[in-house]
Amino acid sequence: MDYALQQLLNALAFGAEYSLVALGLAVVFSIMGLVNFAHGEIIGVSAYSVFLAAALGLTSPIVAVLLAVAAAALAAVTFERVAFRPVRYAPTTTGLLTAFGVSIVVQNLFMLLISPKPQSVSILNGLNQMWFFGPFAVSSLQVMELVVSGLTILALVLFLSRSTLGLAIRAASRDFATVRLMGIRANRVIATAFAISGALAGIAAVFILARRGSVSPDLGFGLVLKAFVACVLGGFGSLAGAAAGGMLLGFIEVGLLVALPQEYGGFKDALTYVIIVALLVYRPEGLLGQRVELGDKEI
């Protein structure tokens, strides 16, 4: 029972982290049609901000958390202003290549200006403790990851459904050109989407730092690839799909870790992708995506 509960919590915590990062990708994609592969470097900027602040004498974990979120939101808005705005109306491949370019440049800046080696960050270690509920011992970090992710997604849903700016963002995600004809300022909507995306990356960065206790230049890149897979699995462009896809990916990975004999543990990633491919063959539009009728192109 203890083991099952622990694995369930593992799956939920991993899923919550993937969901946060996938939501960040989906918010931007739904409006701009941009797959922002530099999203991982926003996580990196956030983590390095905490590292630098700690090196300068910051000791408060609460301030570190706020700094991580603020730095990520600021980095995301800066990336948009400097790199993505000039290519906003260019073909989607241009945006994709720009995102890869930003990712490479920022990773190299981390290496040149700080270090190519992982740097220890211990300021958030206090988040990672064991909590005991009767006979059960659970990781405080996983519980917080789950609760904070849930609350963050709830706050995002409320913002999008209740606020004026949220309504403008939802309309822009359906038809950006028409929303501009309604007088809604494109720059404001897109900057807000990037700020939300960055804040989500910042929250994810806090949990990653607390678990790993270190930061390296490629910290977020691998995670963004998984978040991209989560988005595809959930239905690209759908925010609910991104959250659901992230959670499903967490369950698939932890499920395979539990199910596979230890000597086959190395096959976890390969088998994860086999399962995802099988799911996409069965449902190409993803869990919550909408099927697009291609007419005679389907033949």
Binding site: L167, A168, A171, R174, D175, I184
Partner: peptide
């Protein structure tokens, strides 16, 4: 060119945001 997934009222509200502004 409507926002097809938004409700009828929300379609009108999107335009009204600018008018209020």
């Amino acid at each position: 060119r409507l926002f097809k997934e938004l409700t009828v009222r929300q379609n009108v509200e999107v335009a009204h945001i600018t008018c209020r502004d």
